[in-house]
């Protein structure tokens, strides 16, 4: 019997054996619905807690009060009133702080990650400074740079610099033996190896540092405003809190978190565009 015959003689009348993998019903619910559910439960609990007076209104406003204030602040921002000015100041601090952190962090990261001197002589100090509570430097920055945005920029940058240094240095160390050997056999100079191999290879980790830094930069700017005054969003929060206007504090924090999220998303977007190859293997294999 030829092969075709054998194939032909298989029973054709029987049904296909298509079967479904078992999935729980929760897996089939759309993600948005699940998120909405958690949100609804949260609001419900919040509402219950406040409705029956378990907590003082001053400590925890009702969801409704908070929503009202959210709309109020939103309107104020959209119509360009004083809160927009405050937001603008904070945004400027965040922007300059992040820019400064990127410049310093990347440069230091390359020095520490690429040179033996940097690794042996500079890195220990960086680690030592990194373990300090950086917020404690805020009064110093105010004393040095004044009550204007400079001191907040400095604190924001100070906090965001370290993750970028660490990310860059770790990224530079991540180049595998194969790639190093390959570049050596091609007769590449140290500079060429850095530019054409190590830095591109470091990019995913540089971006990890940038993401962590982008969160810290916001915290730095707001802390700076709490401790050093000025006319930013942090000052609005501080004022509202001192007036026991808790709904306002809540809504201001919410708007800040939206901005924080936006910055984070922006960095993630840049990462997807610049490190377009990520998820692919960096190179194939591992032997030396």
């Amino acid at each position: 019997m030829s092969l075709e015959r054998i194939a032909d003689s298989s029973p054709a009348t029987e049904e296909d054996t298509v079967w479904k993998e078992e999935t729980g019903w929760l897996d089939r619910v759309p993600r948005a619905a699940k998120m909405l559910f958690v949100f609804a439960v949260f609001i419900l609990l919040w509402d219950l807690v406040t409705r029956f007076g378990m907590v003082s209104r001053i400590i925890l406003p009702t969801p409704y009060e908070t929503l009202k204030d959210l709309i109020f602040v939103g309107k104020n921002l959209l119509t360009g009133q004083y809160m927009l000015g405050a937001l603008w100041i904070t945004l400027k601090e965040v922007f300059y702080g992040f820019l400064l952190a990127m410049l310093i962090g990347f440069t230091l990261g390359v020095i520490v990650g690429e040179t033996a001197f940097g690794e042996q002589a500079i890195m220990p100090y960086l680690v030592a400074i990194d373990t300090m509570p950086k917020v404690a430097f805020a009064p110093l920055f105010v004393a040095w740079l004044g009550f204007d945005i400079d001191s907040k920029v400095a604190l924001a940058a100070f906090i965001a610099t370290f993750p970028i240094v660490v990310g860059t240095a770790a990224g530079l160390h991540s180049a595998d033996v194969n790639s190093r050997n390959l570049f050596r056999t091609m007769g590449a100079s140290r500079w060429q190896t850095l530019i054409k191999m190590k830095l591109p290879m470091a990019l995913p980790q540089v971006f990890t540092g940038l993401k962590i830094g982008s969160v810290g930069v916001m915290a730095g700017a707001i802390t700076g405003e709490f401790l050093g005054g000025g006319k930013g969003f942090g000052e609005l929060i501080r004022t509202a809190a001192s007036q026991l206007n808790t709904p306002r504090v809540f809504s201001l924090i919410l708007y800040l978190s939206i901005i924080g999220l936006a910055i984070f998303t922006l960095v993630s977007f840049a990462q997807r565009r610049i490190v377009f190859w990520q998820k692919d293997r960096v190179s194939t294999g591992g032997e030396g």
Partner: peptide
């Protein structure tokens, strides 16, 4: 020299990977 692993760089196209030694020299 050719190693056990291909070690192509993912940010370069195949063609760019191939001309890399020339670019370096």
């Amino acid at each position: 020299m050719m190693f056990q692993q291909a070690t192509l760089f993912p940010w370069r196209t195949t063609l760019e990977n191939i001309v890399l030694p020339i670019e370096i020299r």
